[in-house]
Write a protein that binds this DNA or RNA. Structure first.
Lengths: 252, 252
DNA sequence: CTTAATATGATTGTTTTTGATTGTTTTTGA
DNA sequence: TCAAAAACAATCAAAAACAATCATATTAAG
């Protein structure tokens, strides 16, 4: 079996099972252990998976990868609903920050405001924004190979030199007790500062982000609005959270 | 079988199967391996597919497709020759800056040094670098919609926080009287600073950059090397310039 | 018809991929 | 804790795929 095809197979299998043994892969592909090991090493090097003793598992942050998320996209419709609402918040002549991530990416086609400036940490966002003729800035710094987001000290430095009318962020977990959380600490730092630098902040989160807690906490000092969907608004979780957070959206 | 018909067949098969081995195609078309290889090369060159060891697969729809016009560029071969030589200069464990532009983009596939860090101003470069498993940083700031290069104050700020072993730059004009020039003043500023921050600087320029002068001047305080091609080295312009500049490359 | 341009298949030597082998590290279970 | 078993990295040589070149065949143009 051809190298490329084999590695592709490994990744698709992995997205289904989230753990694979070396033995499984040997049987599945019909080639030697050496070859599989080499494949896993290469795939790890480009950040597609994480090798462990006995096999490989999903890189914990590759959940965020846009393509993969879209493939799993059971929530795509919901994400788009949320993204559309968020995009409508942007008004003419504003300067906004749009966070990296698959939900915020969906916002871009819905942006209709004129003469705006967008600063983003998502490399995937840039092309879409440019296509729409939007003046676009990107944060500098290291590129995370899994998500194509800029992170690190330089990104933070760049960020500090801007001020925003509105800030749009994705978030992995929302919890009453633990607040807003994401798996990656570096991304959390960016999010925190971005909120700080904006007059208004919006959190984009579909229904299965609620009652989830991840490693890195994003502290919120100012008022933020959570953009939500119809599905959330009609569920029980909404009542639970409505005392703690301001919501927008959720009806058509 | 007619060339055109055969290539058409390859593309239709590929759209069905998204992967083809060389063997498959040999059987399917009844012609030699050489011919199939040539077909695949041509089709790759116009961006219809992607060659891999053992066959070909569909073009992975990349985030930022490098401008196709650049790829078809008349001097592609020469650019690649220059890019290859430049890439060989990079050694293990080094930290280098790679400028935006089509010539420097060609360098990336030729990079074989391990454990390096690359800082770039070219958004199109990022994906290629990440694919190669190279740790990648991007300068922050505004994105020029025409070239997908970052420019402006933020880019300069980000740049200043790094130091490089080697700096690789494209250049639009080289002239004995007027030195190094490019059409865009903002890009010129980035180039100037990058040279300043590197121990060694390399200018990548094919033959028709010589005796050209553009608006923005890139002053050179330290020693720079001009990476050149066989074509330049064998021409008259080379003699003219060899007193003013240090050259590397140009022979096989 | 002749000549130039292109396409083809065979041949060359080189690079990449691969599976086996080696000895080392990690895990497991007594 | 120890020893056996499993998994591992590193190295090697064979095999497959490769690019480059050549001579021949085919086509197109003058």
């Amino acid at each position: 079996m051809i190298t490329e095809k084999r590695q592709e197979l490994i990744l698709t299998e992995l997205s289904k099972k989230d753990f694979l043994t070396l033995q499984e892969l040997i049987e599945r592909t019909g080639c030697s252990a050496s070859t599989i090991r080499r494949d896993l090493s290469k795939l790890q090097k480009v950040g597609k998976l994480k090798r462990v003793h006995g096999g490989a598992m999903l890189n914990d942050s590759s959940i965020l990868e846009p393509n993969l998320a879209d493939k799993r996209g059971t929530n795509l419709k919901e994400k788009q609903e949320i993204a559309r609402l968020a995009a409508l918040e942007i008004e003419d002549n504003e300067c906004v920050f749009i966070d990296a991530g698959s939900t915020t990416l969906e916002m871009i086609p819905y942006i209709s405001a004129q003469n705006i400036v967008v600063v983003t940490s998502g490399l995937t966002h840039v092309e879409e924004l440019i296509k729409q003729g939007i003046r676009t800035f990107i944060l500098g710094g290291e590129i995370k190979s899994t998500t194509y987001a800029t992170v690190g000290a330089s990104a933070l430095e760049t960020l500090k030199s801007y001020r925003f009318d509105k800030v749009f962020l994705g978030m992995n977990g929302i919890d009453i007790k633990y607040g807003l959380t994401t798996p990656d600490e570096q991304e959390a730092i960016i999010k925190k500062y971005a909120i700080h630098l904006g007059t208004n902040a919006y959190i984009l989160a579909d229904h299965d982000k609620y009652d989830k807690v991840y490693f890195a906490h994003v502290p919120v000092e100012t008022q933020v609005s959570i953009v939500t969907s119809k599905k959330v608004k009609e569920s029980d979780i909404f009542k639970k959270y409505t005392e703690h957070y301001t919501f927008i959206g959720g009806t058509r």
